[in-house]
Amino acid sequence: MYFKKKAKPDIGLSDEELVLSLQQVMDADLFGLLYDRYTARVYQKCIGMVRDQDIAKDLTHDIFLKAFVNLKKFDHRSKFGTWLYRITYNYCLDHLRKGQRQRTSQVDEGMGLELEEEDRYEEELLSMRSDELPTVLEQLDPGDRAVLLMKYQDELSIKEMMEILELGESAVKMRIMRSRERALVKYRNLYPDLS
């Protein structure tokens, strides 16, 4: 049965066990345990994306509700954290794009990567000053910003990014490269003396 009188929440359960229990019996207190485990990560990810605490709070609230409503659809093929990250990423992007109506450019999967050049771009990106980086990120398309935060802040693997972005390996690599290039162009325009 979908709804049933609940047992006491067991804090010793793993994420997967908690989710399995919630898929069998919907329980607000049990869901509260999942909230406790992931709220800081979701909230901080939202702040990273929208750079506003009040909006981040509202987004976090909505993201957890969305996760609760869709919990039955979670198929355990990925980690729960990765699934929640995908919801967070998509929800923040939707929010940011509402007023912007900007489409991510089509990914060209056929383009090859010049590794040495790529290393140089990465080095330049990571040599940005931390007080300038937020301004650069703010001026980027939300999709580019999200990709750079995944790669360089959360240090997600290509495989994790493939799951979150629902793209193939070469498309993910291409998106990282494109986002990095666009960030560097912004940086050079904003701070010509420093770059």
């Binding site: 406790d36 709220t39 800081a40 909230y43 901080q44 990571l126 931390s130 750079l148 360089y152």
Partner: peptide, 16 residues
């Protein structure tokens, strides 16, 4: 620098 700018803020207590 991406690590330096990472937010360490916690959500407000009442959000739960």
């Amino acid at each position: 620098p991406f690590k330096i700018i990472r937010s360490t803020d916690l959500p407000p207590e009442h959000l739960k």
